[in-house]
């Protein structure tokens, strides 16, 4: 039973930790300058946290990705970045190529 309800509790907490920023933004709009130094620091912390998460998900994945090879995941990520910059920041092309590359590399290992 708690296997089902416990995630909802975590997600309620997550939803609260998300909405509080939106509501605070509405309340503070027009009173604080959004270009201030404090907000630059907030952006830096958020960016660093997400970069840490992305690197962790690629290098030490949990779940089904844990069964793929690190070299394949890194190769697919580098390929996605290359296509993304070659197509002048085309998100759709980069994401498609990156995910397709991992699928192809993993599948290819079963053949050769």
């Amino acid at each position: 039973m708690s296997e089902f309800w416990l995630p909802f509790a975590a997600m309620m907490v997550g939803a609260g930790a998300t909405y509080v920023w939106r509501a605070l933004g509405v309340a503070l709009s027009g009173r604080v300058n959004p270009d201030s130094r404090a907000f630059e620091w907030i952006a830096c912390v958020a960016y660093a946290l997400l970069a840490a998460l992305i690197a962790r998900m690629i290098i030490f994945p949990i779940g089904p990705l844990a069964e793929t090879y690190l070299a394949d995941r890194l190769g697919a990520a580098v390929g996605a970045l290359a296509i993304f910059f070659l197509t002048r920041n085309n998100l759709l092309a980069g994401v498609s190529v990156g995910t397709a590359a991992l699928v192809a590399l993993t599948w290819g290992r079963t053949i050769f």
Partner: peptide, 21 residues
């Protein structure tokens, strides 16, 4: 979980502030 989600989404604060006007 709460601290990680809050830090991740703090970027919504300046976004909401600039969107409102």
């Amino acid at each position: 979980i709460a601290s990680a989600v809050a830090l991740t989404n703090a970027r919504l604060l300046p976004m909401a502030m600039t969107l409102m006007p």
